[in-house]
């Protein structure tokens, strides 16, 4: 079998994007675009696990993003920044650099625990009914945050800018972009490896026929808990990263059903059950938003129209349920392929 070049390609991308941002070859605007691309990829790939692979209809992804965003940013602001509510930083600024990913992980864990709010109802309901539950959870999270005055309530939470500035003062690097890139790679890796394992294929068996899955010895409840917690946890990771964007604030209004819809649009554009489709559509969608920026509010007329046209002519999304390497077999030289080893075994 040929050696896959994928790790090399990823490393090259990392060097170009991070190095380019560090040396200011990419200006702040482009850095912001890269940041949103990375975050959107994490959101799309993670939601694809539920909406694509498992065939459920979760429309509350932004809620879990919010949990991650608030938990992570409260932690970082409390620990590493001077704040009106939390007082002086608990730890010296230098610690922020190694502990930032820890805060991200804690935010992700919190979001995955919140994921149980939909995982447990999913034992008994599915389809439209579960979709309504996910919607409700999105609202619950948003309203809960709005009513917590100590973190700013509806006005939002600030202070993350100081955390990022402190980190940059200790050592000047595009930290947020670095962790977004790493988070994105880890997300893709986790979701891809899980769904291509026999354990994770139980997720697809649930989509195809849940009763048959349970009767063919798949512990469907366990698989659902894993899938929902994984998906929601990764949404929380995306939220934690998003909370530290250069804008320096988050508010509950960011994490509404509108944001969830945006993620869903990216999943369906890319193709349900296709990770490479999700990546392509997240990148494309982020760019499209930027290209159409001059249109102002009218971009929200143009984009849905594009979606309608897309659904008419290619209802399965850009890649359907295939991966890029299925459509262009030559790419296998880069990606490597597990399917190849099956084929060898069956010869």
């Amino acid at each position: 079998m040929r050696k896959p070049y994928l790790p090399l390609v990823v490393l090259l991308l990392f060097v170009v994007i991070i190095g380019g941002s560090w040396l200011r070859i990419f200006n702040e605007y482009w850095q912001l675009v890269f940041l949103f691309m990375g975050i959107n990829i994490i959101l799309t790939v993670s939601l694809n696990l539920i909406n694509g692979y498992m065939g459920e209809f979760s429309c509350g992804h932004a809620g879990f993003m919010a949990v991650g965003a608030y938990v992570t940013s409260i932690l970082t602001v409390w620990l590493f920044a001077e704040d009106k509510v939390f007082g002086p930083p608990v730890l010296p600024a230098a610690w922020a650099i190694p502990l930032f990913p820890v805060a991200l992980i804690i935010g992700a864990v919190a979001a995955s625990l919140a994921g149980l709010l939909i995982a447990i109802p999913s034992f008994r309901t599915r389809g439209d009914y579960l979709a309504i539950i996910t919607l409700a959870v999105n609202y619950i999270v948003k309203s809960a945050i709005e009513n917590m005055e100590f973190i700013g309530g509806p006005r939002g939470f600030v202070g993350m800018k100081r955390v990022m500035n402190n980190m940059a003062d200790v050592f000047n690097a595009p930290w947020l972009l670095i962790w977004t890139f790493i988070g994105m790679i880890i997300t893709i890796l986790i979701v891809h490896r899980f769904v291509s394992s026999t354990l994770g294929k139980g997720v697809e068996a649930i989509r195809e026929d849940e009763i048959a899955a349970e009767l063919m010895s798949v512990n469907t409840r366990r698989i659902k808990v894993i899938a929902f917690m994984l998906s929601c946890g990764l949404a929380g990771l995306a939220g934690g990263l998003f909370a530290h964007w250069p804008g320096g604030y988050i508010n509950p209004g960011t994490f509404t059903i509108l944001k969830s819809t945006e993620v869903m649009v990216m999943v369906y554009l890319g193709g349900m059950g296709s990770i490479s489709g999700s990546i392509i559509s997240a990148i494309g969608f982020t760019l499209l938003l930027e290209v159409l920026r001059p249109l102002g509010v009218f971009k929200w007329v143009v984009i849905p129209l594009l979606l309608v046209v897309m659904m008419l002519f290619r209802p399965t999304g850009i890649l359907g349920n295939k991966e890029l390497s299925d459509v262009f077999p030559r790419l296998r030289a880069i990606f490597g392929s597990e399917e190849e080893s099956y084929a060898l075994a069956s010869d």
Binding site: T198, L199, K201, G202, E204, A205, R207, E208, D209, A212, A213, M216, S217, V218, N219, N321, Y342, S346
Partner: peptide
Amino acid sequence: LWNELTVLDNVCIAHA
């Protein structure tokens, strides 16, 4: 059967 999955996957998953 799990229609969209391959025959091999259908048999593999039953080893769950």
